[in-house]
Design a protein around this nucleic acid. Sequence first.
RNA 1: GUCCCCAUCGUCUAGCCUGGUCCAGGACACCGGCCUUUCACGCCGGCAACACCGGUUCAAAUCCGGUUGGGGACGCCA
Length: 483
Amino acid sequence: MITRFAPSPTGHLHIGGARTALFNYLLARGLGGKFVLRVEDTDAQRSTEEYTKSILSAMEWLGLSWDGEPVFQTDRTGLHVEHAERLVAEGRAYWCRCTPEEIEESRKKAMAEGGKPRYDGRCRELGLGPSPGAVIRFKCPPGGQVRWRDLIKGPIVFEASELDDLVILRSDGLPTYNMAVVVDDITMGVTHVVRGDDHVNNTPRQILLYQALGAELPEFGHVPMILGSDKSRLSKRHGATSVMAYQEAGYLPQALVNYLARLGWSHGDQEIFSLEEMVGVFSLRHVGKAAAVFDPNKLDWLNAHYIKNTPPDELCSLLKPFLEKRGLPAPDGEKLLKIVLTLRERSKTLAEMAGKAEFYFGDLPKFDPKSAEQLLALLKTPEGADAPAKDAGGKAILEKWLGLLQELPRTREDFDQLLSGLAAELGVKAGVVAKPLRLALTGSTASPGLHEIMEILGPEVTLGRIRAAAETPEGYPQVRQPA
RNA sequence: GUCCCCAUCGUCUAGCCUGGUCCAGGACACCGGCCUUUCACGCCGGCAACACCGGUUCAAAUCCGGUUGGGGACGCCA
């Protein structure tokens, strides 16, 4: 068995492409076959080397290793031309000199007659030879049906009369898509052609070419499209569509692969799969026929799952580039590890984690606008007898903390004792005394546990931040612009 | 316009092939509760679907036909 992934380098690897690549990979690996990569770069206008590199690196990042060197379609032009000429020689194709105007006229006529726009084959029996501007067209059989049993969709039938004489060799001497694909799949020994749904309509033409070339047919499988939330084809306006964009947003490859696999494929009620695990249980039989809507929420859930389950030291190295992107200096290993430990249960992406880590850096934290307001409000609440029972006066609380924390508590238990002691002393709930401290330390009302935070910040920064908040010097707190 | 494909909770899906075990199961999201120094995690609970019509059958989410709806394709792009 040989499967293949055949992207054209006219853009970055997108979500849909990644999924068909994944399915091909799983199919081959599961059955001990080969998975090859073919770069379909026959469109000289739009193909670039940069995109080729980008696609290959995205494949590697996802862990979809292919067998052998990538094949470039433009390296095989000779082969394609040879086959096209052979078809002419055997009377199964012919040279056509029709002008664009003539073709257009033919299409319009077909449309007017209630059919689909098609070329009428007027050069078909003219026995023309090559000439500048001429193309080779395949002679489509006049009648009958083309049918195949699709690996995913089941039996599909096309009337041959629906097909017209497609161009197989362009006037610039390069093969067209259908020709190049068929010749390559034949000569590369591809046994299972698994590709996007949008190619179903190409398949009957390709089957005809296989037959004209006297080649054995491969199996075909067409995987359904991925749609955006409005059920139209997934595109940029739905958000990120390239694998690279997800990488940059801090998604883990395991999460993306897991998500893509489960989008359209299932294995009972199981949701979490490693790539290796999927290889063992994957089957086209359980790929659905219907298009699927891409759900960023579920991807986030999976990503959070994989973040939580990645060994912390590994997470540290994964996080570093994201910290750097924010201009945060990577702390030494021990400290970074502690930071990561406080954040990994709270982050859906590495980018989000880096954002949440921001308050660990610098002397004073930046506040989000709402938290800044809250701190100021707390500081204004009167202390003592005038204070509402639920609110013991922010300034007083912070000063108490300042006293209590001259020596940082060693353990979480020690801190808890300080906390509940202070709460009892002021006759308020623990949350009331924790809140000003949290605001002072992190610039936010939501954060990891206070004790672990202080341990990471160290005594100097901890006390400095509390003091700054209690005294609210001019211009404090400094408000952070929302990202 | 023509052809092809598809149709179970808001979303991803199990079940459909081999009708009864499905007044339809799981997951994400959402809502409620517990845990709790906040947020999150975790745990518990809830909401929520067989597109419609007809046929076959003792019995249909499951089989058949039609309708509607959605998607895709009709290039010297891939």
